[in-house]
């Protein structure tokens, strides 16, 4: 088991940032940690990394307690922090060597650092001061820094926040490769299509509580709706029959989207009643619900 989280509580004064969080992450998993802003994701990651002290509870990384056996636990953990922090005094290469040095790794590790620079597309920035890098480049350096000691468990706290589409795709590919090489990956993100594309197992936090923990497929199944998207022949307003009104997901001129229950709604019957209401369309397709819908459904339900 890569990460074992047992009854973690974290209080900041009266604020319950985390309450009774327990779950495990298997070795070799690609794990998604999701939740709205302030849910407690970074706090939980901070406890794993030793940056935050739990009020109660234990976390083990590869069997090492982060509090009792902090040295071993930190050796097996790589953290990409959410904040774009950097030390302006040093170049990219110097920074990586320093970070590796903290982990006790010297010259014997330089080859790996060169490789990291290559894989992350930083080779031509190796001697550039961190101050002079763009935000996306700094993000890559953060990732490289997390990997200097080849940790079996890699935690990425919103690595794709504020990066352009191209870099995001590159980072996806990179984390996939890491995963294929056998690293356990823990990813937090606000882009749910990202979690959907990458993660096998997912935990959802909301207001400090664990509100869902399952495989991606089970979570997707949990939301029993799919969307029916129709391209209409006219751009006019439509008059939906009463039976369909409650199924309306969205309407834009020429575009009608209905939300259908997977089991209770028959597409044939729906199309029948549309025709009866004189609503004509040129094209139609259905979409399975994504994590987005599951997420909104879960987090909004929990907050009422």
């Amino acid at each position: 088991m890569a990460v074992r989280i047992q009854q973690i509580y974290k209080y900041y004064g009266d604020l319950h940032a985390l309450e009774d969080i327990s779950f495990n992450i298997e070795a070799g998993d690609f794990f998604g940690l999701l939740g709205p802003n302030g849910a407690g994701k970074s706090t939980l990651i901070g406890i794993m990394a030793g940056l935050v002290r739990a009020s109660r509870g234990h976390i083990q990384i590869m069997g090492h307690d982060v509090h009792q056996q902090w040295r071993q636990a930190r050796q097996v953990l790589g953290i990409v922090p959410q904040e774009l922090a950097y030390d302006p005094f040093f170049t990219v290469k110097q920074m990586l060597r320093l970070q590796a040095g903290y982990f006790g790794l010297g010259r014997e590790n330089y080859l790996w650092l060169e490789e990291l620079l290559d894989i992350l597309g930083l080779a031509n920035k190796a001697n550039t001061s961190l101050r002079d890098l763009s935000g996306g480049m700094k993000r890559r350096v953060l990732i490289a820094q997390a990997l200097v000691h080849k940790p079996p468990v890699v935690v990425l706290d919103e690595p794709t926040a504020g990066v352009d589409v191209e870099l995001r795709k590159a980072l996806w590919q990179f984390t996939r490769q890491l995963h294929e090489k056998g690293h356990t990956i823990v990813l937090t993100t606000h882009y749910l299509e990202e979690a959907e594309a990458l993660c096998n197992n997912i935990a959802i936090l909301n207001q400090g509580k664990l509100i869902a923990l399952d495989t991606k497929q089970k979570l997707l199944d949990y939301y029993p709706y799919r969307l029916l998207r129709l391209s209409l022949t006219s751009e006019d307003e439509v008059n939906l029959p009463p039976a369909l009104q409650e199924k309306l997901q969205s309407f834009q001129p020429g575009q009608l989207v209905l939300k259908l229950h997977r089991e209770h709604d028959q597409i044939g019957a729906i199309l029948e009643s549309l025709r009866a209401a004189q609503i004509h369309f040129t094209d139609l397709h259905t979409e399975e619900a994504g994590l987005e819908e599951v997420f909104v459904n879960l987090t909004s339900k929990a907050s009422v």
Partner: peptide, 17 residues
């Protein structure tokens, strides 16, 4: 300075006592 810049985390997550 490293506290303010946040770069202190790199030291704090490393196995330094």
């Amino acid at each position: 300075q490293s506290k303010m810049q946040g770069s202190v985390v790199f030291m704090l997550i490393s196995p330094l006592s």
